[in-house]
Design a binder for these strands. Structure first.
Length: 577
RNA sequence: GCCGGCGUAGCUCAGGGGUAGAGCAACUGAUUCGUAAUCAGUCGGUCGGAGGUUCAACUCCUCUCGCCGGCUCCA
């Protein structure tokens, strides 16, 4: 973000704070930074604030802007500042100052509003031309849920009114791509109150999309030497005690007691794959051994975090566990990275962020093995020349990981693909292989998903394509629409030809105008509509209309079949919206 | 889980203590039409659920379930 814009937004945040100070005496102030597309300020308010009150605050802010107050900076000795803010009861500010290492702290003042702030700021409040308060939300002080919850007001500001309008318009447009809205409109999936939150029901069209993705995944995994396995949805609690999930993951697990025995609905697939590995002795010659499963898992996510397909309680991962030697680790990681990137590209994803998460405070295993695994991950990223960021201390307790985050329509990021190195489970389950030396050794395990969960991936995919899937994924690939009922027989003949060629085809022989049929097809984002009238029947042709109002004119049905078949086979991601 | 908001017909939404509304969809009929909405009629609701206040609650209050925006947490 441009520094100028950042300053503008930060200054707007200060004006917001001043307005709140005037309107709600007794408010304590926390922090108010500029963020990606605006700013926020966190307050400890004496009252609870609702969305409607934002316009009242905006009004006050406009008054402050009009008053054209100067932003004045002064420096204060740390002790002095602590006294000053303590006197005002500003406990959050005092806490902030105490954490500043310098001797002096910077204070900004506009009118009678004084705030701890590094700056920089605009010269005067009057420089703000275009801002809007967006929403009010709760946020924990310092982002820690053990701390009190503050009231956060989000807003945005731009240099011109036009830019502000454009931004608000963009958000409205993005909302039209929301997978929850499109999922319902296009008949892809639905959630049902009576069935429980976070549980997805794929409708027939969604099931087709999902199945196409699964078929593709199975093929690609087989091509890369993975062995597909299938494991049960429940397992005795003992298995989860051995794995450590019972101790570390219990609040996310579903339990049930049957015949006096306790079972767990699986939250992960790893223990199952380990059982399969351990069913026989393995030589170093067997490694790497890769078990793949489209494994459906259930996790009790906290109610407030559920979000359409992107965050659910039951989902299917394209999960695999690779058992390999330490020497093979880097090579395996590289292959997985390559696999992931290839798949993302084939689905048309260009925007994703890669993170390398390193050793957290609590961890198992030696420093030496952590360093080895972390550098294996990092070297793989470097050699693939993939740009990445480091997420320090964000690794799992059992090992470091690479996460790839996909973006939704509103640019919120969601973790999809991940590669995690694990030293813990092989230890807990006493997983071994016989080495060249004839002795038992412990393999390293890699947990990895390529798309992540099918649910989340489909959600991201719907938003990515705004519901207009590439033809190979489309539930309906071709609609045959007749001009009058006279062409019904010809339409059936055409449909038969397409179906014989495995093209998913539906017909619209209703007594409706062609414009009406085309409109419906357009709203359903169907890629091709074949229009049949007397003209086509006489010429033994079809008129082809491609998604996005493109009239391709008349052609022979064989030519159309060959064209669309190629498009399907190549999984063409050519987008025409 | 926490903070704030919202739940009215299959869908999108209006209404506001005194007989429940529109558009689309569905159904019936007419129309047989050339590239994003043909016309007319009909059907459709325990106003998310449970308590309470009131002569009277869809409307006010309490609880509860679900959804939305955030926070925290994650595929």
């Amino acid at each position: 973000m441009k520094e100028q814009l950042e300053t503008l937004r930060h200054s707007t945040a200060h004006i917001l704070a001043q307005a709140v100070a005037t309107l709600f005496p007794g408010t304590k102030f926390a922090i108010g930074p500029a963020i990606a597309d605006g700013f926020y300020y966190d307050f400890d308010l004496p009252i609870s604030l609702s969305q409607e009150q934002l316009s009242e605050i905006e009004k006050k802010m406009k008054f402050i802007i009009k008053s054209n107050l100067a932003f004045e900076q002064t420096m204060m000795k740390k002790g002095e500042a602590i006294d000053f803010f303590s006197q005002k009861g500003e406990k959050y500010k005092v806490e902030l100052i105490e954490n500043i290492p310098d001797e002096e702290v910077s204070i900004y003042k506009q009118g009678d509003f004084i705030d701890l702030c590094r700056g920089p700021h605009l010269k005067r409040t009057g420089e703000i031309k275009a801002f809007k308060l967006i929403s009010v939300a709760g946020a924990y002080w310092r982002g820690d849920e053990k701390n009190p919850m503050l009231t956060r007001i989000y807003g945005t500001a731009f240099e011109t009114k036009e830019e502000l309008e454009q931004h608000l318009h963009n958000i409205e447009e993005a909302k039209k791509r929301d997978h929850r809205k499109l999922g319902k409109e296009l008949g892809i999936f639905q959630l049902y109150d009576e069935a429980g939150p976070g549980l997805i029901y794929y409708h027939p069209k969604g099931a087709i999309v999902r199945e196409e993705i699964c078929r593709f995944l199975r093929l690609e995994h087989a091509n890369r030497g993975y062995h597909e396995v299938v494991t049960p949805h429940i397992a005795r609690v003992d298995l989860w005690k051995t794995s450590g999930h019972y101790d570390f993951y219990r609040e996310n697990m579903y339990f049930m007691t049957v015949d006096g025995m306790e079972y767990v609905l699986k939250p992960m697939n790893c223990p199952g794959h380990i059982l399969i590995y351990k069913s026989q002795m393995h030589s170093y010659r067997d490694l790497p051994l890769r078990f793949f499963e489209l494994g459906t898992v259930y996790r009790h996510e906290r109610s407030g975090v559920l979000h359409g397909l992107l965050r659910v309680r039951g989902f299917t991962q394209d999960d695999a566990h690779i058992f390999c030697t330490r020497e093979q680790l880097k090579d395996e990681i590289q292959q997985v990275l390559e696999f992931i990137i290839t798949m993302l590209v084939s689905f048309g994803f260009k925007e994703y962020e890669i993170y390398l998460s390193t050793r957290p405070e609590k961890y198992v295993g030696s420093d030496e093995i952590w360093d080895m695994a972390t550098s294996a991950l990092e070297m793989s990223l470097k050699e693939k020349e993939l740009p990445y960021q480091i997420d320090p201390g964000e690794g799992v307790f059992y090992g470091p990981k690479i996460d790839i985050k996909l973006k939704d329509a509103l640019s919120r990021t969601w973790q999809g693909p991940t590669i995690q190195v694990d030293f813990n489970l092989p230890e807990r389950f006493n997983v071994t292989y016989v080495g060249q030396d004839g002795k038992e050794h412990q393999p390293v395990m890699i947990h990895r998903v390529v798309l992540g969960s099918l649910e989340r991936f489909m959600g991201a995919l719907i938003e990515h394509y705004a519901g207009a899937f590439p033809v190979w994924l489309c539930p309906t690939q071709v609609l045959i629409a007749t001009i009058t009922e006279r062409q019904t027989t010809y339409g059936e003949f055409i449909q038969n030809q397409l179906r014989t060629n495995q093209i998913r085809t539906v017909t619209d022989f209703r007594n409706e105008k062609i414009g009406f049929k085309i409109r419906e097809a357009g709203m359903q984002k169907l890629p091709y509509v074949l229009i049949l009238g007397d003209n086509e029947e006489q010429n033994k042709t079809i008129s082809v209309r491609k998604r996005g109002s493109v009239d391709m004119g008349q052609m022979r049905v064989e030519d159309f079949i060959s064209m669309i078949t190629t498009e399907i086979r190549e999984k063409s991601v050519d987008i025409w919206s």
